[in-house]
Design a protein around this nucleic acid. Structure first.
Lengths: 227, 227
DNA sequence: ACAATATATATTGTATACAATCAGATAGCA
DNA sequence: TGCTATCTGATTGTATACAATATATATTGT
């Protein structure tokens, strides 16, 4: 399944060099090209990505902001360990915020919002039946973004966006479990139903289940990496 | 009270230029020198901070990672609105994570940890009675860091560190309410007692109260700014 | 007058040369 | 030997010149 997934391709387009380098570096870190904790030397990255040091330095600063590496001033950059513990810490925090925002969005939820969510869900099901997983990935993102933005919490939104960058890149490398797509449909349906009922406890439960299952599936896909 | 607070002075010491610029920029954004949403032009910042454009660009990337500004590739950087809604979103997320980590630390809490927390608490009370608020600020940080690290959740830790940078800078500008120091002593005491009892519900309540009160005090100090 | 296009200016982004800092090796000395 | 100090090479950080891009202004054609 993984071979069918295509990246958003920020890397190829006419973006600044530092953006393209950031995308490639993120992929190289998460795919395991750089080993956990490895020291990244500017000169080597200049060699690898065939650009000058300045865009590389800026990409490193951005990735530090994403938590994928640590820069010690005057010393150098080390890639963060991408191990099970790291991912679990991400998903624990993600679940806290995702559940919170999804429940909170009830306050601002209008009829038209429910309509567009249902629309996205329908498109998702269509794409899934065509096995168009690239579109599925995008629609999944739109489904959740729509909900998050209704919650009116910029800090939470920003953190979840950051996580999405990371998880998306991991999914491009490791793919999904074979049943995951249909599971996602059911879980999104459950969230939608709960939102329509406007019952906070039901929303909380549905959002939590979705997050727990997403984590379990990704970790299963990565199980060989962790051994 | 604010006049007595001193910054950690990363800005003055022999750190890279981009670190010093980052500190000053953060302060200038949070203190309101730059108005909300203002466009930051590199040339102007070069003029203001008397350094070349490269360290400024790196500082901007770092601050984007902290969520204090948004960089549009090939367009420019805009400072984020620092208004009541922004701070409320921060504190909402912060509370989620802080409570979660504090509860989770129970699992790993050893006798020696409780001892060092009590030690920090004692030092805090001593510093408070001498009205040494700079030391108080540092001890407050150590108190919470000690707890967070026991929770073993790197993502949560990182987000709280980021928040601390932000809140600390705001405190340096806007100070504390006159009773806040003694309130903090009581609230930390309550958290400590709850941790010693190893009762999750009690810990959750104590941590939540602490967070809510901190937010209320800061917003009160900043009330004139928001009006 | 208006739209589309070309031109000019301002601004961001990249490459390169050089300076500052750090880590390891070597030398000097008790 | 063990310790300190100094040098040396590797690496990070800074300044500056130049290129690419976006924005504002002017020009042209209808």
């Amino acid at each position: 399944m993984k071979d069918k997934l295509q990246s958003d391709s920020l890397s190829e387009l006419a973006n600044p060099t530092y953006s393209r380098v950031r995308e490639k570096l993120r992929e190289d870190i998460l795919s395991g090209y750089f080993i956990s904790g490895e020291r990244l030397k500017i000169a080597e990255l200049v060699e690898r990505y065939k650009v000058s040091q300045m865009p590389i330095r800026e990409a490193l600063q951005q990735l530090q902001g994403e938590g994928l590496l640590i820069i010690e001033p005057n010393k150098g950059a080390h890639v963060r360990k991408v191990d099970r513990q790291f991912l679990e810490s991400i998903y624990e925090i993600r679940q806290l915020i995702e559940v919170y925002l999804t429940v909170k969005c009830i306050e601002n939820l209008k009829e038209k919002d429910l309509k567009s969510l249902n629309q996205i869900q329908k498109s998702y099901e269509a794409a899934a039946s065509k096995e168009d997983y690239t579109t599925c990935l995008q629609l999944n993102r739109r489904f959740h973004s729509t909900i998050y933005e209704l919650a009116n919490n910029s800090e939470g939104l920003q953190i979840l966006e950051k996580h999405w960058q990371l998880i998306n890149t991991l999914r491009l490398t490791y793919g999904f479990g074979s049943r995951r797509t249909t599971e996602v449909i059911e879980e999104h349906r459950a969230i939608l139903d709960a939102l329509e009922s406007r019952n906070p406890a039901a929303v909380e439960a549905a959002a939590a289940i979705h997050c727990v299952n997403a984590k379990a599936d990704l970790l299963a896909q990565m199980s060989d990496k962790f051994k």
